[in-house]
């Protein structure tokens, strides 16, 4: 079945089973490997992208549910120069192995889009991505540096 997705601003038609999760459409059908597979049950957040501007886990999200949607992946986030969150990630040297960071960054961008000045509690609630290297403290420091004073 054909589905229309607007991926990083470009209209893309994919002909796949309706149940195929968006993650595998992005990775295996379109070669956009910046979005990662971590758990397959939407528990870790490594597969987070923006669907119509909202941070969404894609490993259990059937492509039929996002037909016609605007999808932004980590590759699209900094298309016109680094996003301020990506810059803050470099300034604070956040990533270690880096595997979870695409999803982490997409979650943080979505939070800051909604709430320019999130409280610690709002950050805790919104960014529930798993990082096994333990970058959390630097994630928090980088987010703090982006808050609107």
């Amino acid at each position: 079945m054909a589905f229309k997705l607007i991926i990083n601003g470009e209209e893309t038609i994919v002909d796949v089973e309706p149940a195929m999760p968006l993650l595998w459409v992005l990775r295996d059908e379109l070669g956009l490997t910046g979005t990662k597979f971590g758990c397959g049950i939407a528990a870790c957040g490594a597969c987070t992208v923006h669907v119509n501007g909202v941070a969404t886990r894609t490993c259990v999200l059937p492509v039929e549910a996002v037909d016609g949607a605007e999808i932004t992946t980590i590759e699209g986030l900094g298309k016109n120069g680094l996003h301020p969150v990506q810059q803050a990630w470099i300034e604070h040297q956040v990533p270690q192995c880096g595997y979870c960071q695409s999803g982490m960054i997409m979650s943080v961008v979505s939070l800051l889009d909604n709430t320019g000045n999130p409280t610690d509690e709002e950050l805790n609630q919104a960014v529930t991505n798993v990082c096994r290297c333990g970058t959390y403290q630097k994630v928090r420091a980088a987010v703090d540096s982006l808050k609107q004073s």
């Binding site: 990662k36 680094l82 956040v94 990533p95 880096g98």
Partner: peptide, 14 residues
Amino acid sequence: DTPAKVVGMQNYGI
């Protein structure tokens, strides 16, 4: 390795 890791361009085995 940070710049590649914040734009999704770091190539992992997977």
